[in-house]
């Protein structure tokens, strides 16, 4: 089974995203900020990370930059999922190593379409 770590400081968003991903046959785990996400990745690296931008402690872009420097193991596919919907944020995310980018609000169809883009559907 494919697995996904959903990183978002909103419990509601995590729940909605997890439900959609579970429907799409993903095993899901959750983290509420970048620090928790890093810990989770160091324990078990997921295949996919759905990543919010604005979070306390460590935000999405800092997390991503740290993650992409990690040497050991496979690098996961990272899909941003954020309300930061402007081109400069998108470009910054892509150059930091994001594979795809979802602009909130999202729905099931968008998640499916974006997973197809990264070859996970």
């Amino acid at each position: 089974m494919k697995n996904c770590l959903v990183v978002d400081d909103s419990r509601v968003i995590r729940k909605v995203a997890c439900r959609i991903l579970q429907d799409l046959k993903f095993d899901t785990a959750e983290a509420e900020d970048g620090i928790a996400a890093l810990q989770s990745c160091r324990q078990r690296m997921p295949q996919l990370i759905l990543l919010d931008w604005n979070m306390p402690n460590m935000n999405g872009i800092e997390f991503l930059k740290t993650l992409r420097k990690e040497r050991n193991g496979q690098q996961p596919v990272v899909v941003f999922c954020t309300t930061e919907n402007d081109v400069s944020h998108i470009t910054e995310a892509l150059s930091a190593g994001a594979n795809e980018y979802i602009m909130k609000p999202f729905d099931r169809e968008i998640i499916e379409a974006k997973l197809a883009e990264v070859g996970l559907m």
């Binding site: 998108i90 892509l94 795809e100 980018y101 979802i102 602009m103 729905d107 968008i110 379409a113 883009e117």
Partner: peptide, 15 residues
């Protein structure tokens, strides 16, 4: 719309 550009379009193509 926001929804139309997120179905089938890779983010790199969008930007």
């Amino acid at each position: 719309s926001h929804f139309e550009v997120q179905r089938g379009l890779a983010i790199r193509r969008l930007v």
